[in-house]
């Protein structure tokens, strides 16, 4: 083969290959969007309103049969205390299942810590749950197709198909997944799929006396959650991971991890 022919053939092959790849890319996102343009679940947390009572955690555990005494939970509430010298102290005993009832901060093996009142600059609670990301890292790493995203944006685990390898538990940047001690599979928040699909509220949002937690349809411009997300200053956790979370926070500090 002459050099000229070789270069010509190579150019034709590369051009042909790149066309077919870009054609595939062009079709897929359109199909994705056409699947269900009317419904995409989103969640809104107002950190000002949260008082750290932990009723959400208790309700979630009861509603979803998460063993009550085991140290695993689908949702939890963190307490942040930011001192005037800039130090950040944080605790989350038992995922706040029993609420915050003492000024002492649980520092695990370092014992209990009391931050004197006059040293506190800011102190607040941050409820956490699965972010039901638009591009979930946990789903991508599943080797058997046991965890997936539904057309309305909820990330679920197929308990009959999960092999319990734990890749997704390691893959989630938010640490919301855990190994279910009874079912022996990976487990996570489902946005109470059984409740929201019937028009109800999630168990955690229903249990909250202060409306600190709300679930809504991000595709509906008249939905209160969608309106807040569109019109107010909201933040998401760990934006830099590119997972595009669907849990939005009002009053999020940079100290919150």
């Amino acid at each position: 083969m002459k050099r000229r022919d070789f270069l010509k053939n190579t150019a034709v092959f590369v051009a042909g290959a790149s066309v077919s790849v870009s054609a595939l890319d062009f079709i897929t996102p359109k199909e994705l969007f056409a699947a269900n343009p009317q419904l995409k679940w989103g969640f809104l947390v107002d950190t000002h309103k949260c008082v750290g009572c932990g009723f959400c955690v208790k309700a979630c555990k009861t509603e979803n049969d998460i063993p009550y005494e085991a140290n695993v939970t689908r949702t939890w509430v963190e307490r942040y205390v930011i001192k005037k010298d800039g130090d950040v102290v944080m605790d989350c005993p038992k995922g706040a299942r029993d609420g915050y009832t003492t000024k002492l901060l649980d520092q695990n093996h370092s014992g209990m810590l009391l931050v004197p009142e006059d040293e506190i600059a800011q102190a607040f609670f941050v409820p956490k749950l699965c972010n039901h990301c638009t591009t979930p890292a946990c789903v991508q790493v599943c080797p058997v197709g046991a965890t997936y995203q539904t057309a309305d944006g909820v990330v679920l685990v197929d308990r009959s198909w999960c092999i319990g390898c734990g890749y997704c538990i390691m893959g989630c940047p938010y640490g919301v997944r855990f190994f279910h001690p009874v079912e022996h599979v990976a487990d996570k928040c489902t946005f109470c799929y059984h409740r929201i699909s019937k028009g109800g509220d999630t168990a955690c949002a229903q249990a909250c006396p202060f409306d600190a937690r709300q679930i809504g349809n991000l595709k509906d411009p008249n939905d209160p959650v969608a309106q807040t997300v569109l019109s107010q200053r909201v933040g998401v956790l760990r934006d830099e991971y590119g997972t595009k979370p669907n849990v939005y926070y009002i009053g999020l500090n940079k100290e919150v991890r």
């Binding site: 950190t47 000002h48 309103k49 949260c50 008082v51 750290g52 915050y100 003492t102 000024k103 009142e117 506190i120 600059a121 800011q122 102190a123 607040f124 609670f125 202060f210 009053g251």
Partner: peptide
């Protein structure tokens, strides 16, 4: 509790 930036 002392929670100056929370409704608590």
């Amino acid at each position: 509790l002392t929670m100056p930036s929370s409704d608590r």
